[in-house]
Amino acid sequence: MNDTNFRKPVRKAVFPVAGLGTRFLPATKAIPKELLPVVDRPLIQYAVDEAREAGIEEFVFVTGRGKTAIVEHFDTAFELEATMTGRGKSLDPLHPTRIQPGNLVTVRQQVPLGLGHAIWCARSVIGDEPFAIFLPDELMYGSPGCMAQMVEAYNEVGGNLISVLEVPEAEVSSYGVIAPGEVRGNLTEVKGLVEKPKVEDAPSNKIVSGRYILQPEIMGLLETQGKGAGGEIQLTDAMAKLIGTQPFHAVTFNGQRFDCGSKVGFVEATLAVALDREDMGEEIRAMAKRLLA
C-alpha cells in the first residue's frame, strides 16, 4: 500500500447542521442550535474559526429545514454594517463571520438518517478529495485548535484520522472507543472502533470526539451501507471498513472538549470560555464565587 496516495491536502470541510436541537427547546424553536452563543460567538463560528486556522478553504454545510439563519450568519449584513459605520462603531466583530464568495456551499439532508447519511449528502462537493468533518455540538477548545493538530499529523502519516480524548475508564461505555495499535506521542494507530462498549470490554479509554479527516472512499461505503444502530446510517460503521485498507490513526487532542449538545455541557463551555477571556475573566470568577457562597 502506497501511503502517498492518501496525502492530498485537506481543503474542504463538512459541517452537519441539520439536527433539530430538541434538547434545547424552546430556545431552538426558531433559532438553530448551532447559533446558540457561547459567550458572544455561536457554536458554528467556533467550528469555522477552527477550520480556518487549520487551512480549510471550502465550507460545506449539510442543512435541513429551518436552518437558513446559519448561512445568513456568514453572509454580509449590509444594513447592519452601514448602521454601525454611521455610528462610528468598529466592524471588527463581524470580520470572522465573512466567508469568501463561492467558498460556502450548502446541501440538504431531506430525511434524518444519521451522521453517515449527512456526510454522504456532501459527496458531489467533496469529489475525489480528502475532507474534514466538524461536529459543531462539540466545542474543542485549545491552541492550536484540534483540527490544526490533526492536519499536522495528517501531513506526517496521511490517510484517515480521528480526534480522541482520554477519559476515566468508568465512562467509556458512553462513547465510541478505539482499539489502539502503535502509539507515537499524540498519534495512535487505530486497529478497530467499538461503539459504547461495556467497561470490562473496552479496548482502551480513548474516545472518539467530533473531528475527522477522511479519504473520499468513505462516500462509496456510505452509498451502499445499510442502517445500523438506531435505524440510522452510521459513520462509524463505514470508517471501520477503511481500517486495514488505508492508514488510520487517532490524534489525542491537547485541549478541552465540551459537549454542547447537552445543557450542562453548554453551561460548562460558556463558563470555561468566559473565565479564559482577558476582558471578563476576573469579573466572571468573582461572580462565580458570589453565586457559590
Rank of each mutant, 00 (worst) to 15 (best):
K8R: 13
K8P: 06
V14R: 07
F15S: 02
P16I: 07
P16T: 08
G19V: 11
L20K: 08
L20I: 07
F24M: 06
F24R: 01
P26W: 11
K29W: 15
I31V: 06
K33S: 13
L35D: 06
P37Q: 07
V39T: 05
R41L: 14
L43W: 04
I44A: 08
I44E: 07
D49S: 10
D49E: 15
R52P: 00
R52W: 05
G55M: 04
I56C: 12
F59I: 07
V60H: 03
T68D: 15
A69Q: 10
H73Q: 05
H73L: 11
H73R: 06
D75I: 06
T76I: 14
E79S: 12
A82L: 12
K89R: 14
K89V: 13
P93K: 04
P96Q: 09
I99L: 11
G102R: 03
N103G: 02
L104M: 09
L104Y: 04
T106I: 02
Q109D: 06
Q110T: 09
G114F: 11
G114I: 11
L115F: 07
G116F: 05
A122W: 06
S124I: 12
D128G: 08
F131V: 01
F134Q: 01
D137L: 14
M140Q: 09
V151G: 09
V151R: 10
N155M: 11
N155L: 14
V157P: 01
G158V: 05
N160V: 05
I162M: 14
V164Y: 10
E166M: 12
V167Y: 03
S173P: 00
G176W: 07
V177E: 08
V183D: 04
G185C: 00
N186T: 11
T188D: 05
V190K: 00
K191L: 15
L193S: 02
E195L: 15
E195D: 13
K198N: 13
K198P: 02
D201W: 04
S204D: 03
I207T: 08
V208T: 07
S209A: 14
Q215N: 08
L221D: 03
K227Y: 12
D237C: 05
A240C: 06
L242V: 02
I243A: 10
A250F: 09
A250D: 05
V251E: 05
T252R: 15
C260I: 00
C260K: 00
E268M: 08
T270E: 12
A274N: 02
E283S: 08
I284R: 05
A286W: 03
A286Q: 02
K289G: 10
L292K: 11
